[in-house]
Simulated scan of single mutants.
Amino acid sequence: MKNLIIVFLVFISALAQAQNSTLFEEANDAYANDDFETAIAKYEEILDNGETSAAVYYNLGNAHYKLNNVAPSIYYYEKALQLNPTDEDVQNNIEFARSMTIDEIPVNEETGFQKSVNQFISTFTYNTWAYLSIALSIIFVILFLFYYFSRKPIIKRSLFGAAVFVFLLGGISVFFAFHQQEIQFNNQFAIIFADEAEVKNEPSQRGDAAFNLHEGTKARVLEDYQGWVKIELSNGTQGWIKNENIKRL
C-alpha cells in the first residue's frame, strides 16, 4: 500500500511538472504575440501551482513592463533576483523599470572593506553557499583519507596541506551561508503597489503625514502593528504605511 502511495505521488508530481511546462510554453507564445495579459495569467497560474523559478518571475516582470505596470514589473524582477542575484538580464531590466518610478530616493551606500565583502557574499544565495560547503566537506574527507593511507612523507604533507586548505574554505563557506541567510531573512523588503500612499510618523490615521510614496518604490520592512507597517527607505528615512499599500517580497 505504501509503495502505491509513493507511485501515486510521483505520478501527480510528474503530471504537475508537465502541466507547468505546457503553461510556460503557452505563456511564452502569448508574450511573443504581444498578448501580454494572457501571458501574465498563464505565468501566474504556474505560480499558483506551487512552482517558482527565476525564469517565470523574470518573464512576468517583462510582461508587466510591456503593459507599463510599474509596481508589478519591479516586484517580479526583484523576485527573480532573489532566486538568481547574478542574472545580468534581470539586473538590466529592473533598472529600466525603476526609471519609470516617480520617487527619486538616494541610496546610502556602504563603503570600504565591508561593502566589498557583502558584494562578494551576495554573489550566491545562502543555499548555494551551503551546497558549496557540503562539497568542500566531501573533498576534505577524501583528501584526509588519502593522507591517512599514504605512505610517502612528501605526498602526506601535500595532502595534509590541501586538506587543511579545503577545510578552511568549507568553514568560510558555512560562515557566508549563515551571513547571506541572515541578510535575506532579517532584511525583508516590499514594493509600494498603491498609485500614491501616505506615510505617517506613527501607526495611526490621526498621525501626522511625513511624506508620500508612489508605486514601484522599494522599502525595507521593519515592523508590523495593527495593519500598519514601519518601513525604511534606501536613504534611511522611516515612517508608517498601511499594509494594504505594499506587497512584500
Results as ranks from 00 to 15, higher is better:
Leu159Arg: 01
Arg151Ile: 15
Arg157Ser: 15
Lys156Arg: 12
Ile154Met: 14
Ile191Asp: 06
Ala163Ile: 00
Phe124Glu: 05
Asn127Ser: 12
Thr128Pro: 04
Ser122Thr: 08
Phe146Arg: 10
Gln184Cys: 01
Tyr126Cys: 01
Tyr126Thr: 00
Ile154Trp: 15
Gly171Asn: 12
Leu143Thr: 01
Ile142Asn: 05
Ala135Arg: 07
Ser150Phe: 02
Asn118Trp: 13
Ile192Asn: 03
Leu143His: 02
Leu136Gly: 00
Tyr131His: 13
Tyr147Gln: 12
Phe167Met: 10
Glu182Cys: 03
Phe167Ile: 03
Arg151Val: 15
Lys115Ser: 13
Ala135Gln: 08
Pro153Ser: 08
Leu145Lys: 12
Ser133Gly: 02
Ala135Trp: 11
Phe120Leu: 12
Ser116Glu: 12
Gln188Lys: 10
Arg157Phe: 14
Ile155Thr: 09
Leu132Ser: 12
Gln184Asp: 11
Ser150Cys: 07
Phe178Ala: 08
Phe149Ser: 07
Ser133Asn: 02
Ile191Trp: 07
Ser133Ala: 10
Ala163Tyr: 00
Phe185Leu: 04
Ala194Asp: 09
Tyr126Asn: 04
Asn118Arg: 14
Leu143Phe: 03
Gly171Val: 02
Gln184Trp: 05
Phe189Ala: 05
Phe124Val: 01
Lys156Gly: 01
Phe144Met: 14
Ala177Cys: 06
Gln181Cys: 06
Ser116Ala: 14
Phe176Asn: 03
Arg157Val: 13
Gln180Val: 02
Pro153Thr: 07
Phe189Asn: 06
